[in-house]
Nucleic acid binder design. Structure first.
Lengths: 200, 200, 200, 200
DNA sequence: CATGAATGAGAGTTCATTCAT
DNA sequence: GATGAATGAACTCTCATTCAT
C-alpha cells in the first residue's frame, strides 16, 4: 500500500501531477476522484482537504500550472530581441517541445481538457487570454521574420495554428522511452518549421 | 405515444451528424443522449431503435465514418503513382484539410474522442490499425520524395506526426465562416509543409 | 422467418401458449412483449390487436386458462362420490400430475406468476377464490377418508399444502423427454401420497 | 451529504435480510433498489458501497447464504450414520422445515429466484452443483432405507423431488403467526413422508 | 392485421461531494 | 489530515405501449 518511498505527507503538487496523469489516460470526465486519490495513496474524500474546490479546482490548477511550465521559457526566448527572428523562432520551438515532452501528462491535459475548463464561466476569460497571448508570441516573431525579409510571406495566423497543432499533438502520441528523446524531437520540429519559413 | 406524423423519417446519418456535433461541443462524456436526440427532434430512448448499442455504438460509428470521409480522397491521391511525390503530397494535404474543414465536428471527434473509443477493447485494434495505415500513406509519399532527391532528409515518423498534428488541430480551432475558407486554409497548409520538405 | 407450417393467421391460443413458455423461461417481468411476439412470428405491437389489455391481460388469461386445464378433470373425479375416498384421491392426483406434465409451461406459470397477478387488485379476489376452492377439493376427500377410517388422522391443511407443493414443483423440474413419462410420474406420486395416508 | 450520525452502522447482513424480504414480496424484478434501501434506512445509491455488484450481487448472496442456512443442519443429520435411516430421514425433514419456516423470506427466494440467478452464467454452475449435492443427501438416506428393508421401494429421484417440492412450497404459503408453529409443521411433514416410505 | 418508429416513465448505476468519527 | 459511509443528482438504458402508414 505504500507506493511512495517516504510514506510521509502528500502535497498539492503530488496530487496535481497524479491528476494530470489520470486526466491524460481517462479524460477529465472519465477520471474519478477515487482514481486520482489512489495514485497518491489517499481516498477520494481526502482530496477535499487539499482542494476544497474539488475536481474543477484540480483541473484549473493542472491547466494553469501547465500553461506556466510550457510558456515560461518560450516567452523569455521570444522576447529576447537581441537575437535574430529565425534564431528566436528556432529556440522557442525547441524549448517548447522539450518542455512538452518533459511533461506529457500536462501537455495532454492542455490539449484535451482546455475545452472542459471552458464549460464554466469563471477563469474562462483569463485562461483564454493567457493562451492567446502565448500564441501571439509566436505570431510576433514570425511577423518579425517576414518584415526582416528572412521568412516567406505566409498567413501568420494559419501558420501559427499549424505550428501549435503539431506541438500540442505531442501530448497525444509522445511517450517517454521512445525511439527519440524529447530533445531530438525538439530539434527535428524546429528544423521543419524553420525550413517552412526560411527563404532559401 | 407514437409521434412524428410525417416529418420525414429520421435516419442513422442524421443522428450520427448530430452526435458528432454534440461531441464536438461537449465531449463524449459530457454529451447526453438527450442532447443528441434533441438535435434530431427525438427523445433519448428513441435513439436506441437506431443504435441498440447506445452511446458507445454512436461514437464507434461517428469515428469509423469520420475516418472514412477523411481518408478516402487522400488515399486515392497518394496511391496515384502517376504523379510526382511533391505533387501527390501537396494534393493530399489539400484534400485532407478541405475534408476536415468541411466536416469540423467529425474532425473534432477524431481528435478528442479517439481516446474514448480505446477505453473498450472491441474495435480498438481494427480502428487503430486503420489509423496507422492512413498515417503510413503520408510516410510513404514522403519517403518517395526523399529517395527521389526532391525532399530533404527528415525524420519521417516525426514529420508525419507534426503534419497530422497540424491538420487534426483544425478540429479544435476551425469554424465555418471565418476569415478564410477551408480551401484557402488547405492551400496555405499544403504550401507550408511542402516548403518544409522541398530542397531549394 | 416462417416457423409455423401454415403461415396463416395467428390466434389467441398460439400467443397464450407462447407466452406461457416465455414466462416459464424468463418470468413475467423478465419476459418482453417482443420475446412473446417473436415466438409467433409477430412484432410486439401486433400483440395488442389480440390482447388490448397488454402483458397483464396475457398473464391473466394464461393463468385463468391454466387453472381451468389443471382443475377440470380433478374436480370431476373428486366430486364423483360413487367412488371410495382413497380411489378418488389416487385418481385425482394422477389426473392432476398428468395434466401438469402435459402443460409444463402453464404449470410453471401457475407456480411462479400467481404472485405477479396479485400485484394488481382486479381479478385478485376471484382468482384466489378459485384456487382456494380447488385446494378445498383435496381437503374434502382427505377428510372423507379420515372420517371413513381408511386414512390416518393428519393435519389436513398442512397435508394438502404438502401435496400441492409436491405437485406444483413439477413446474420447476419436469421437462418433456425425461427418464419417465408424465403418466409414470403421476403413478408414483399418487402412490406416495396414498401410502402416506393409508392405515395399514 | 453524509448522514447516519450514530444510528449504528448498517451491515451487509441487514441488507441481505431486507433484500430477501423485498424479494419475497415483489420478486427480484419487481424489487427496486430503493425498496431494499428503504428497509434499512438508506438510499439506493448507498447500497453500492456494500454491494458493488448491485442487485445481482445481492441476489447471489441472498441465495448462497440461504442455501447455507437451510443446508447446514440437514447435512449434519443425514451424514450422521450412527442413526438408522428412518430416524435420519425424519430428523432431516424436521430440521429442514424448521429452518425454512424460521427464514421464510430466504425460503421464498430459494423457490422463486433461483431461476433468476440462472439467467447469468457466472455462479450458475457452482450454485446448481450445491443444490444437486444437497438433493443427493436426501436420495442417499432414502436408498439406505430401501436397502435396509425398512422403506418401500420407491422411485427415489421422483420421491425426493416430491419431498423437496412440499418443503420448498413453504416459502409460498407459510407466514409467521399462523395456526401452527414451524416446529409443529415440521413434525407433521416429517410424519407424512416417513409414513409414505415405511413398510408397515 | 401487421409493422416500425417513437414515446415516456422508470430503474439501475455512477460518482462528486459531505461529514462524523 | 484521513477515512468510510452516505447522499443525491444525473444519466444511460429498457421496454410496454401507441399509432400513422
Amino acid at each position: 500500500m505504500a507506493r511512495k518511498p517516504a510514506d510521509q505527507a502528500v502535497n498539492r503538487q503530488d496530487i496535481l501531477l497524479a491528476a494530470a496523469d489520470v486526466f491524460r489516460r481517462k479524460g477529465f470526465h472519465g477520471a474519478k476522484m477515487a482514481d486520482i486519490a489512489a495514485e497518491v495513496d489517499l481516498t477520494a474524500g481526502s482530496l477535499y482537504h487539499h482542494f476544497p474546490g474539488g475536481k474543477q479546482q484540480i483541473l484549473h490548477e493542472v491547466l494553469a500550472n501547465g500553461l506556466d511550465i510550457v510558456t515560461e521559457k518560450v516567452r523569455a526566448i521570444i522576447e529576447d530581441t537581441t537575437l535574430a527572428p529565425a534564431e528566436r523562432f528556432r529556440r522557442a520551438i525547441y524549448a517548447h517541445v522539450v518542455s512538452l515532452t518533459a511533461n506529457v501528462s500536462v501537455a495532454a491535459a492542455l490539449v484535451f481538457e482546455t475545452r472542459t475548463i471552458l464549460e464554466d464561466d469563471i477563469e474562462r476569460e483569463s485562461y483564454l487570454a493567457r493562451r492567446d497571448r502565448f500564441e501571439a508570441l509566436y505570431q510576433r516573431v514570425i511577423e518579425d521574420g517576414i518584415e526582416t525579409g528572412v521568412f516567406r510571406t505566409v498567413d501568420v495566423p494559419i501558420f501559427s495554428k499549424a505550428l501549435l497543432g503539431a506541438q500540442n499533438w505531442l501530448g497525444v502520441w509522445y511517450r517517454d522511452g521512445g525511439r527519440l528523446t524529447g530533445e531530438q524531437i525538439a530539434n527535428e520540429m524546429a528544423e521543419f518549421f524553420l525550413n517552412a519559413l526560411l527563404i532559401c
